[in-house]
Amino acid sequence: MAYTSNGATIDADEEGYLIDINQWNEDLAGQIAKDEGIAMSPEHWEVVNFLREYYSEYQIAPAVRVLTKAIAKKMGPDKGNNKYLYELFPYGPGKQACKIAGLPKPTGCV
C-alpha cells in the first residue's frame, strides 16, 4: 500500500508500516494515526517522538516491554506503564505508535 503526503507518494507494506523511514513527516504521522482511529495529542506525540529517538540511536523498534521500561526511565512511572500507553494506543504501543512514527514493526511482534 501507499500514502500520499504533501503531493508525494510514500510506499508502505501491506500493514501500513513505511518502507523508508526517511520519508516520514508529521503530516503523514497524523494521517496514519487517523487511519488507526487516533487523534494525536501532545501525549501521543511524546511517545512517537520518543520512539523516533530510540530508533535513531539503536536502529530497531523496541519491544513493548522495552519501550515501557525506557519511557519509565525517561519520563517517570506515571507514563512508563502499560495502562497509560495502551490508553493512548489501544491496539498496542508497539504496533500503533511505531507505525505512526514511521518505524518498522517491532522485532518479534506478530
Binding site: 540511536e57 539503536y58 522495552v66 521500561k69
Partner: peptide
C-alpha cells in the same frame, strides 16, 4: 545494525 548491540542492555 551495530548500534542495536547497545540496545541489548534494555532487553
Amino acid at each position: 545494525f551495530s548500534p542495536t548491540f547497545r540496545a541489548l542492555e534494555g532487553y
